[in-house]
Simulated scan of single mutants.
Amino acid sequence: MKPIQIIDRISYIAFANFFLFMVMSVVIGGDALSGFVKDEEYFVSDYGEYAQVDIFTWYLSRTLGLGALVFMPLAITLKFSHYLYRLIRRIYELIRKKCRNSESQ
Score class of each variant (00 low, 15 high):
10 I>E: 02
20 L>T: 00
48 G>C: 06
15 F>A: 08
95 I>Q: 14
57 T>Y: 10
43 F>D: 00
13 I>M: 06
10 I>W: 02
52 Q>V: 08
68 A>F: 06
54 D>K: 14
70 V>F: 10
67 G>L: 01
18 F>R: 04
87 L>T: 12
72 M>W: 09
36 F>T: 10
58 W>D: 01
26 V>P: 00
11 S>W: 00
93 E>Y: 12
29 G>N: 04
78 L>D: 02
92 Y>G: 07
17 N>I: 05
79 K>V: 11
75 A>V: 01
33 L>K: 01
35 G>L: 03
54 D>M: 11
24 M>A: 11
85 Y>M: 11
33 L>M: 08
38 K>Q: 13
24 M>K: 12
13 I>L: 07
64 L>Y: 02
38 K>F: 09
30 G>A: 05
55 I>W: 09
94 L>Q: 15
83 Y>A: 13
76 I>V: 15
32 A>H: 00
90 R>G: 07
82 H>M: 14
51 A>P: 00
49 E>Q: 13
71 F>I: 05
53 V>G: 02
47 Y>I: 07
39 D>F: 08
11 S>G: 07
71 F>S: 00
88 I>G: 07
20 L>K: 03
55 I>T: 11
46 D>H: 14
58 W>T: 02
72 M>C: 08
73 P>I: 04
16 A>F: 05
27 V>S: 08
68 A>I: 05
54 D>E: 15
46 D>W: 13
67 G>W: 00
51 A>I: 10
36 F>M: 10
77 T>I: 13
16 A>D: 08
25 S>L: 07
32 A>N: 03
79 K>F: 09
74 L>G: 01
11 S>K: 05
75 A>D: 00
71 F>M: 03
66 L>C: 06
63 T>W: 12
80 F>L: 15
23 V>M: 06
22 M>F: 12
28 I>K: 03
51 A>Y: 12
22 M>Y: 09
80 F>S: 15
76 I>N: 11
92 Y>A: 10
